[in-house]
Amino acid sequence: MDNHMFAATELNQKNQRTEKLVRLLFILMAGLLILPVLIILFTLVYKGSSILSIDFLFTNPTNGMTEGGIFPALLGTIWLVVVALIVSVPLGIAAAIYLSEYAPDNWGTRLINLAIINLAGVPSIVHALFGLGAFVVFFNFGTSILAASLTLAIMTLPVVIVATRESLQAVPHAFREACWNMGATRWQTIRRVVLPNAVSGILTGVILEVSRSAGETAPIMFTGAVFFSPFLPQGVMDQTMAMSLHLFVVSTQVPNVPENLPYGVALVLIGMVLIMNSISIAFRMHLRGKKKW
């Protein structure tokens, strides 16, 4: 080797080797993260796909839940999630708008924010017991979709609030200034400029919440979901079966269940969640592509 002025020194070479090694390590770690997801999905598909059919989705379970389909549970989960959303979305968005756009920066606001963070950290079983005490007993809703959905709504409220507040705050302050200086009131500014530009973030938060509440078992177990019901729910005061609880039941509580049944239930549940998440992501990308600043 002749002495090129910019040739690598020994130290350079050593640094380069370290660089490669470190990068490899990080790739490995990141790869490790996908592994559990892939294994779960693969196992579910491998063991559960044989039971999937239109009939499985749209018929009642029969023969002590060892045969038949999952329709009441599927429908029940949709009921629970939709009613929970009807409560938590307007409430959460309104709270977030107040916190982000109106609330003065004082100890009261900080207290509310602290409460929200803490609410997000409360284990779901505690929410379940709260729901039992508050909605089932105190408000006397009984074990019903209403009580279970209200419990889910309270549990998911912090995430809706935080997601909304963050997307509101991501809207550049200059837009608000422009509006205020033209004589817009706060609400005009929010409705015409801030909300339309925050909607993608808000929706993402909401849809993520849907998928989380679809999978929860504890909060609905004491408040509205039942192991088995031969009837489909007719209204919010009815009890209902639910996918997550059904999965628990057929996996652990019922004897002589064919092996592919619980896997099939889990596959449908995960499928619901994945579909909703993809919708959320696709929607966000669509809206992102449209906005520019």
Partner: peptide, 19 residues
């Protein structure tokens, strides 16, 4: 204030058109 701000327009350092 709304009437006041109608009469008094403000232009900023960085152009801030609405999106």
């Amino acid at each position: 204030l709304v009437q006041l701000r109608k009469q008094v327009g403000m232009v900023f350092q960085r152009p801030n058109p609405l999106p």
